[in-house]
Design a protein around this nucleic acid. Structure first.
Length: 519
RNA sequence: GGCCGGUUCGUCUAUCGGCUAGGACAGCCCCCUUUCACGGGGCAAAGACGGGUUCGACUCCCGUACCGGCUACCA
């Protein structure tokens, strides 16, 4: 790179950040950091009717959670501010005027009703060469009429004047050479009647002023690229234009089309990075963070949606991604989102994450489930014992609750049908033995060497006790497990007894016995 | 309709003219586990179609089909 790489993510603050948006951020960020460049966040709040309070803060929080914080932004500051387009109105006016003076743009006075009627009247109406003379604008009207309308403060927009016959082409970093016949695009509005620029003007002006070298955006922008190319040509020169990269879309898991918030609701998985509540409707939308994804996993899975390093490696840390990212390994085609695979990435990252760190992340879920943790060290140990069977953070609640308190529901149904007095006697004996061990331990302070409290001796004791009886060991073990944890899951039973200790184990046996009948 | 983009197992993808088309997720089977997972092993599963170019095409070219995106004073 001849000059310092500068990229930007430019969302409009209209709601929660969708995974497609986060992936655009990610690729921007990876590209910038790979080239020791800068990543800029610019807020495109030019549509006042769609502005949503809190959305900008949400975006910043999301970037922070993902570890993708910008070098420059409305809150981080920077040399090229302001970073909110609503605060840059005067700048856009200046460039719009320049375009008008040079004959590349014009005033249009048509009201929205005028346009609506015209669209009804003319099928496939385009505000372009074919019809612009039929409309009310500074090309169709005389200079005098235009001056009068302006003097009367008639509301107007400024439109780009698309040239009659021009082949517009550019090289996309992902798609290669792309070309358009300019006559197929219409005279897009650049400056709206409320004085705000549209995306088309703002993106070009700001990318120039903010010295953006590489512009990443979703594939849905490809059709308007010729407008932007033309504006670059008229305003700043094509040699100054950033290199474009139009990223493939993230698609619905089933059927076809762009992934939307609704798909998540319908299919039961998050689409937004974090929980979002619409301030107007109060509508809650679940996020990956709250569903129990680790940011490392979230970033990892997003990176793999459209990029890979050519090997069979699938698990990457952010640093590895930065080191290995390369734009020419980005896929052209859209990718369907697969929630099952997303969970797999999270499971992989849970295994890689330190127990102490996981404990901090899991604690809030335990609190929410009203599971009391008295000893931090014990929590950390429990995390280590159960982590391999957890895909999402809330899985830790179900997988570890029994380490902290007796199960609330006991799946007696799984053992009731084969329950009999032999088994009942066995467990009464077991509970009695445990009670005996406890009291002997309490009375003779340090001396009880034969007191079984580690998993191995507990298992030996259990087996010896079972050997005296005409019952299959497997059935006893299953029953014991259910008594201890409430269901058919969890680590080895004797490790659990060791962890929760004999007194708890004894009580759980007795509680369960009271629930089982032997008839 | 027009314009633009895309097309390898169900899904994410590898392959940059030599392929018995590889991996991962999901599915199924086996092992491990006297539970559930984890883990290990295995099975099944793909080049949209038709033409070229070439000794050879999934890879390059053309056409068709299908899918998607855009077609707002929204981004």
């Amino acid at each position: 790179m001849d000059s310092k790489v500068r990229v930007r993510f430019a969302p409009s603050p209209t709601g929660g950040l969708h995974i497609g948006g986060v992936r655009t951020v990610l690729f921007n960020y990876l590209f910038a950091k790979h080239h020791q460049g800068e990543f800029i966040l610019r807020i495109e709040d030019t549509d006042q009717s769609r502005f949503v309070a809190g959305a900008e803060e949400y975006i910043l929080d999301t970037l922070k959670w993902c570890g993708l914080s910008p070098n420059e932004s409305p809150v981080h500051g920077g040399e090229y501010g302001p970073y909110r387009q609503s605060e840059r109105k005067a700048i856009y006016h200046e460039y719009a005027q320049k375009l008008i003076q040079e004959g590349h743009a014009y005033y249009a006075f048509d009201t929205s009703q005028d346009l609506e009627e015209k669209r009804k009247e003319v099928p496939n109406f385009q505000y372009s060469r074919a019809h612009r003379m039929e409309m009310k604008n500074s090309i169709s009207l005389s200079q005098k009429e235009v001056a009068e309308l302006l003097a009367q403060k008639t509301p107007y927009v400024i439109r780009i004047k698309i040239p009659d016959a021009e082949q517009v082409h550019f090289v996309d970093m992902i798609r290669g050479e792309v070309s358009f016949d300019a006559s197929t695009v219409d005279d897009k509005v650049l400056l709206k009647a409320d004085g705000m620029p549209t995306y088309h003007l703002a993106v070009v002006v700001d990318d120039y002023l903010m010295k953006i070298t590489h512009a990443f955006r979703g594939e849905e922008w490809l059709p308007s690229a010729p407008v932007h190319i033309l504006l670059w040509k008229y305003l700043f020169g094509l040699d100054k234009m950033p290199q474009w990269a139009h990223l493939p879309l993230i698609l619905k898991p089933e059927g076809s089309g762009k992934l939307s918030k609704r798909d998540g609701e319908r299919l039961g998985f998050p689409v937004f990075a974090m929980d979002w509540q619409d301030p107007k409707t109060q509508e809650q939308t679940i996020g990956f963070r709250e569903r129990g994804f680790l940011p490392e996993a979230f970033v990892n899975l997003l990176a793999m949606l459209g990029w890979n390093n050519g090997t069979e490696q699938e698990i990457f840390s952010l640093d590895e991604l930065i080191e290995q990212f390369s734009i020419d390994r980005v896929h052209k085609a859209g990718a369907k989102f697969d929630y099952e695979k997303a969970k797999w990435f999270n499971q992989q990252w849970i295994q890689k994450t330190d127990n102490e760190i996981l404990a901090h992340l899991v604690k809030p879920y335990l609190d929410a489930a009203q599971i009391e943790v008295h000893e931090w060290e014990y929590l950390v140990k429990v995390i280590g014992w159960v982590k391999e069977r957890c895909h999402l953070l809330p899985d830790f609640v179900t997988q570890s609750a029994f380490y902290f308190k007796a199960p609330e529901t006991i799946d007696t149904a799984s053992i009731q049908s084969k329950w009999n007095t032999d088994k009942q006697d066995f467990f009464i004996a077991l509970a009695n033995d445990y009670e005996k061990f406890i009291s002997s331990h309490e009375s003779s302070v340090e001396s009880s060497t034969d007191f079984p409290k580690d998993a191995i001796s507990l298992e030996t004791h259990f087996k010896n006790l079972a050997a005296e009886r005409p019952i299959k060991l497997g059935e006893l073990l299953l029953a014991f497990r259910i008594m201890l944890v409430g269901g058919k899951f969890g680590p080895g039973v004797f490790e659990i007894v060791e962890a929760i200790e004999l007194k708890d184990a004894m009580q759980r046996i007795r509680t369960s016995l009271s629930l089982l009948s032997t008839n």
